Computed example of a mutant assay.
Amino acid sequence: MSPDISLTTLLLLCLAAAAAGWIDAVVGGGGLLQLPALLVGLPHLPPAHILGTNKAVAICGTTAAAVAYTRRDPMTLRSGLRIGLAALVGSLAGAFFASGINSAVLRPLIMAVLLAVLAFVLLRPTFGATAPSPGPVTRRRVLTAIAVAGLGIGFYDGLIGPGTGTFLVIALAAILHMDLVTASGTSKVINVCTNVGALVTFSLQGAVVWQIAAPMAVFNLAGGATGARMALKRGSGFVRGVLVVVVVSLVCKLAYDQWGW
Protein backbone atom coordinates (compact mmCIF):
# COMPACT_ATOMS: atom_id res chain seq x y z
CA MET A 1 0.00 0.00 0.00
CA SER A 2 1.46 3.33 -1.10
CA PRO A 3 -0.84 6.28 -0.37
CA ASP A 4 -0.47 9.44 -2.42
CA ILE A 5 0.48 12.37 -0.18
CA SER A 6 1.71 15.85 -0.94
CA LEU A 7 5.31 16.90 -0.44
CA THR A 8 4.12 19.38 2.20
CA THR A 9 2.41 16.61 4.19
CA LEU A 10 5.51 14.43 3.98
CA LEU A 11 7.71 17.30 5.15
CA LEU A 12 5.41 17.99 8.10
CA LEU A 13 5.45 14.30 9.03
CA CYS A 14 9.26 14.33 8.90
CA LEU A 15 9.42 17.37 11.18
CA ALA A 16 7.00 15.66 13.58
CA ALA A 17 9.25 12.58 13.51
CA ALA A 18 12.30 14.69 14.39
CA ALA A 19 10.48 16.35 17.29
CA ALA A 20 9.15 12.98 18.45
CA GLY A 21 12.64 11.49 18.41
CA TRP A 22 13.96 14.39 20.50
CA ILE A 23 11.12 14.22 23.04
CA ASP A 24 11.35 10.45 23.29
CA ALA A 25 15.10 10.52 23.90
CA VAL A 26 14.87 13.12 26.66
CA VAL A 27 11.82 12.10 28.67
CA GLY A 28 9.96 9.44 26.68
CA GLY A 29 6.61 9.70 24.97
CA GLY A 30 7.64 10.68 21.45
CA GLY A 31 4.82 8.52 20.15
CA LEU A 32 2.40 11.00 21.71
CA LEU A 33 3.40 13.33 18.86
CA GLN A 34 4.34 10.98 16.05
CA LEU A 35 1.39 8.59 16.04
CA PRO A 36 -1.30 11.31 16.10
CA ALA A 37 0.65 13.15 13.38
CA LEU A 38 0.41 10.03 11.19
CA LEU A 39 -3.30 9.71 11.98
CA VAL A 40 -3.88 13.33 10.95
CA GLY A 41 -1.56 13.29 7.92
CA LEU A 42 -2.74 9.93 6.57
CA PRO A 43 -6.43 9.82 7.49
CA HIS A 44 -7.34 7.19 4.89
CA LEU A 45 -4.63 4.71 5.85
CA PRO A 46 -5.81 1.63 7.83
CA PRO A 47 -4.92 1.80 11.54
CA ALA A 48 -2.66 -1.25 11.35
CA HIS A 49 -0.59 0.45 8.64
CA ILE A 50 -0.40 3.63 10.74
CA LEU A 51 0.89 1.62 13.71
CA GLY A 52 3.33 -0.38 11.60
CA THR A 53 4.75 2.71 9.89
CA ASN A 54 5.07 4.41 13.27
CA LYS A 55 7.16 1.50 14.59
CA ALA A 56 9.43 1.51 11.54
CA VAL A 57 10.17 5.20 12.18
CA ALA A 58 10.40 5.07 15.97
CA ILE A 59 12.94 2.26 16.12
CA CYS A 60 15.56 4.46 14.43
CA GLY A 61 15.40 7.34 16.90
CA THR A 62 15.11 5.01 19.88
CA THR A 63 18.18 3.05 18.77
CA ALA A 64 20.22 6.22 18.32
CA ALA A 65 19.22 7.39 21.81
CA ALA A 66 19.97 3.98 23.34
CA VAL A 67 23.47 3.97 21.83
CA ALA A 68 24.16 7.46 23.23
CA TYR A 69 23.02 6.46 26.72
CA THR A 70 24.85 3.13 26.86
CA ARG A 71 28.13 4.77 25.89
CA ARG A 72 27.85 6.78 29.09
CA ASP A 73 26.61 3.98 31.38
CA PRO A 74 27.10 0.29 30.42
CA MET A 75 24.70 -0.69 33.24
CA THR A 76 21.92 0.85 31.17
CA LEU A 77 22.46 -1.79 28.49
CA ARG A 78 22.60 -4.74 30.90
CA SER A 79 19.51 -3.73 32.85
CA GLY A 80 17.61 -2.82 29.72
CA LEU A 81 18.27 -6.11 27.94
CA ARG A 82 17.02 -8.19 30.89
CA ILE A 83 13.68 -6.40 30.89
CA GLY A 84 13.74 -5.88 27.13
CA LEU A 85 13.54 -9.60 26.34
CA ALA A 86 10.24 -9.81 28.21
CA ALA A 87 9.12 -6.58 26.54
CA LEU A 88 9.83 -8.04 23.12
CA VAL A 89 7.49 -10.96 23.86
CA GLY A 90 4.81 -8.59 25.14
CA SER A 91 5.21 -6.36 22.09
CA LEU A 92 4.83 -9.27 19.68
CA ALA A 93 1.57 -10.21 21.38
CA GLY A 94 0.29 -6.64 21.41
CA ALA A 95 1.07 -6.09 17.72
CA PHE A 96 -0.79 -9.31 16.86
CA PHE A 97 -3.97 -7.97 18.46
CA ALA A 98 -3.44 -4.46 17.02
CA SER A 99 -4.38 -5.60 13.52
CA GLY A 100 -8.02 -5.79 14.62
CA ILE A 101 -8.23 -2.21 15.92
CA ASN A 102 -10.21 0.32 13.87
CA SER A 103 -9.76 4.09 13.88
CA ALA A 104 -13.03 4.68 15.76
CA VAL A 105 -11.48 2.84 18.71
CA LEU A 106 -7.88 3.94 18.23
CA ARG A 107 -8.40 7.72 18.57
CA PRO A 108 -10.32 7.56 21.89
CA LEU A 109 -7.71 5.16 23.28
CA ILE A 110 -4.89 7.53 22.35
CA MET A 111 -6.78 10.46 23.89
CA ALA A 112 -7.23 8.50 27.12
CA VAL A 113 -3.49 7.78 27.21
CA LEU A 114 -2.68 11.42 26.50
CA LEU A 115 -4.93 12.61 29.33
CA ALA A 116 -3.44 10.07 31.74
CA VAL A 117 0.10 11.24 30.96
CA LEU A 118 -0.97 14.88 31.20
CA ALA A 119 -2.54 14.28 34.63
CA PHE A 120 0.62 12.58 35.87
CA VAL A 121 2.89 15.38 34.66
CA LEU A 122 0.69 18.09 36.15
CA LEU A 123 0.18 16.34 39.48
CA ARG A 124 3.88 15.51 39.82
CA PRO A 125 5.68 18.84 39.26
CA THR A 126 9.02 17.33 40.26
CA PHE A 127 8.84 14.65 37.56
CA GLY A 128 11.89 14.98 35.36
CA ALA A 129 13.60 17.39 37.72
CA THR A 130 14.58 15.29 40.74
CA ALA A 131 15.82 11.75 41.23
CA PRO A 132 13.76 9.23 43.23
CA SER A 133 14.87 8.23 46.71
CA PRO A 134 17.47 5.46 46.60
CA GLY A 135 16.56 2.04 47.95
CA PRO A 136 17.61 -1.61 47.80
CA VAL A 137 16.82 -3.47 44.60
CA THR A 138 15.62 -6.91 45.61
CA ARG A 139 14.99 -9.91 43.40
CA ARG A 140 11.26 -9.31 43.85
CA ARG A 141 11.63 -5.77 42.50
CA VAL A 142 13.56 -7.03 39.49
CA LEU A 143 10.86 -9.63 38.75
CA THR A 144 8.21 -6.95 39.19
CA ALA A 145 10.02 -4.71 36.74
CA ILE A 146 10.22 -7.56 34.23
CA ALA A 147 6.47 -8.20 34.57
CA VAL A 148 5.33 -4.56 34.56
CA ALA A 149 7.90 -2.74 32.40
CA GLY A 150 8.60 -5.82 30.27
CA LEU A 151 5.50 -7.86 29.58
CA GLY A 152 2.88 -5.27 30.52
CA ILE A 153 4.22 -2.10 28.92
CA GLY A 154 5.67 -4.16 26.07
CA PHE A 155 2.18 -5.47 25.26
CA TYR A 156 0.82 -1.92 25.36
CA ASP A 157 3.60 -0.70 23.05
CA GLY A 158 2.80 -3.36 20.47
CA LEU A 159 -0.93 -2.72 20.74
CA ILE A 160 -1.00 1.11 20.68
CA GLY A 161 2.37 2.63 21.56
CA PRO A 162 2.18 6.36 22.44
CA GLY A 163 3.52 7.18 25.88
CA THR A 164 5.50 3.93 26.19
CA GLY A 165 8.80 5.69 26.85
CA THR A 166 7.28 7.86 29.57
CA PHE A 167 5.56 4.88 31.19
CA LEU A 168 8.85 2.95 31.17
CA VAL A 169 10.74 5.83 32.81
CA ILE A 170 8.10 6.09 35.52
CA ALA A 171 8.03 2.33 36.13
CA LEU A 172 11.82 1.95 36.26
CA ALA A 173 12.27 4.90 38.60
CA ALA A 174 9.50 3.69 40.91
CA ILE A 175 10.29 -0.03 40.95
CA LEU A 176 14.08 -0.14 40.63
CA HIS A 177 14.87 3.23 42.29
CA MET A 178 16.79 4.47 39.26
CA ASP A 179 17.65 8.13 38.88
CA LEU A 180 15.81 9.78 36.02
CA VAL A 181 18.67 9.83 33.51
CA THR A 182 19.47 6.15 34.10
CA ALA A 183 15.78 5.26 33.89
CA SER A 184 15.48 7.18 30.63
CA GLY A 185 18.52 5.44 29.15
CA THR A 186 17.35 2.01 30.27
CA SER A 187 13.90 2.66 28.86
CA LYS A 188 15.43 3.30 25.44
CA VAL A 189 17.08 -0.13 25.40
CA ILE A 190 13.77 -1.73 26.40
CA ASN A 191 11.94 0.35 23.82
CA VAL A 192 14.26 -0.89 21.08
CA CYS A 193 13.25 -4.44 21.99
CA THR A 194 9.53 -3.65 21.95
CA ASN A 195 9.88 -1.85 18.64
CA VAL A 196 11.70 -4.83 17.13
CA GLY A 197 8.98 -7.23 18.27
CA ALA A 198 6.15 -5.04 16.99
CA LEU A 199 7.93 -4.17 13.74
CA VAL A 200 8.53 -7.85 12.91
CA THR A 201 4.83 -8.57 13.35
CA PHE A 202 3.68 -5.57 11.31
CA SER A 203 6.22 -6.30 8.56
CA LEU A 204 5.06 -9.91 8.22
CA GLN A 205 1.50 -8.59 7.92
CA GLY A 206 2.57 -6.12 5.21
CA ALA A 207 1.41 -3.24 7.41
CA VAL A 208 4.39 -0.88 6.97
CA VAL A 209 4.43 1.89 4.36
CA TRP A 210 8.17 1.97 3.82
CA GLN A 211 8.03 4.85 1.30
CA ILE A 212 6.81 7.13 4.08
CA ALA A 213 8.67 5.47 6.94
CA ALA A 214 12.13 5.81 5.34
CA PRO A 215 12.37 9.62 5.14
CA MET A 216 10.64 10.03 8.51
CA ALA A 217 13.12 7.59 10.06
CA VAL A 218 16.08 9.77 9.04
CA PHE A 219 14.57 12.76 10.85
CA ASN A 220 13.58 10.63 13.85
CA LEU A 221 17.13 9.31 14.17
CA ALA A 222 18.56 12.82 14.13
CA GLY A 223 16.06 13.94 16.75
CA GLY A 224 16.79 10.95 18.97
CA ALA A 225 20.54 11.41 18.87
CA THR A 226 20.24 15.13 19.61
CA GLY A 227 17.77 14.60 22.44
CA ALA A 228 19.91 11.98 24.16
CA ARG A 229 22.96 14.26 24.13
CA MET A 230 20.92 17.12 25.58
CA ALA A 231 19.44 14.88 28.30
CA LEU A 232 22.87 13.69 29.37
CA LYS A 233 24.13 17.28 29.59
CA ARG A 234 21.12 19.15 30.97
CA GLY A 235 18.66 16.62 32.41
CA SER A 236 15.06 16.29 31.31
CA GLY A 237 13.18 18.71 33.53
CA PHE A 238 13.08 21.43 30.87
CA VAL A 239 11.06 19.17 28.57
CA ARG A 240 8.14 19.06 31.00
CA GLY A 241 6.57 22.31 29.80
CA VAL A 242 6.97 21.34 26.15
CA LEU A 243 5.38 17.95 26.78
CA VAL A 244 2.35 19.54 28.47
CA VAL A 245 1.79 21.89 25.51
CA VAL A 246 2.15 19.07 22.99
CA VAL A 247 -0.21 16.74 24.86
CA VAL A 248 -2.91 19.40 25.27
CA SER A 249 -2.67 20.35 21.59
CA LEU A 250 -2.93 16.76 20.43
CA VAL A 251 -5.90 15.98 22.68
CA CYS A 252 -7.76 18.96 21.21
CA LYS A 253 -6.86 17.98 17.64
CA LEU A 254 -7.86 14.34 18.03
CA ALA A 255 -11.09 15.30 19.79
CA TYR A 256 -11.96 17.60 16.87
CA ASP A 257 -11.16 14.86 14.34
CA GLN A 258 -13.21 12.31 16.28
CA TRP A 259 -16.34 14.32 17.05
CA GLY A 260 -16.10 17.34 14.74
CA TRP A 261 -16.45 19.98 17.44
Rank of each mutant, 00 (worst) to 15 (best):
G150V: 05
L151E: 05
G152M: 11
G152V: 12
F155N: 03
D157A: 13
L159W: 03
G161T: 13
P162H: 09
G163K: 04
T164G: 07
G165T: 08
F167G: 06
L172Y: 04
L172K: 00
L172R: 00
A174M: 13
A174W: 10
I175D: 05
M178E: 08
D179L: 07
L180I: 15
L180F: 15
V181M: 08
V181S: 12
T182C: 09
A183Y: 03
S184K: 02
G185Y: 02
T186H: 05
T186A: 11
T186V: 13
T186S: 07
T186Y: 03
K188Y: 07
K188F: 08
K188M: 08
V189K: 01
N191D: 08
N191K: 00
N191P: 01
C193D: 00
T194W: 00
T194N: 05
N195E: 10
V196K: 01
V196R: 02
G197D: 08
G197L: 09
A198T: 06
V200R: 07
T201P: 00
S203A: 14
Q205W: 04
G206W: 12
G206I: 12
V208S: 05
V209M: 06
W210A: 14
W210Q: 05
Q211R: 13
I212T: 10
I212H: 10
I212W: 04
A213T: 06
A214H: 01
P215D: 04
P215A: 09
V218W: 03
F219N: 04
A225F: 14
G227D: 06
A228G: 06
A228F: 10
A228K: 00
R229D: 02
M230R: 13
M230L: 15
A231C: 13
A231L: 15
K233E: 11
K233W: 04
G235E: 09
S236L: 13
S236T: 13
S236Q: 14
S236V: 11
S236R: 07
F238E: 10
F238D: 12
G241K: 12
G241I: 06
V242L: 15
V244G: 06
V245T: 13
V246W: 10
V247P: 02
S249Y: 14
L250M: 15
L250V: 15
V251F: 15
V251G: 08
C252M: 14
C252L: 15
K253E: 15
L254V: 10
L254S: 09
A255P: 04
Y256G: 00
Y256R: 13
D257T: 13
D257H: 13
D257R: 14
Q258I: 03
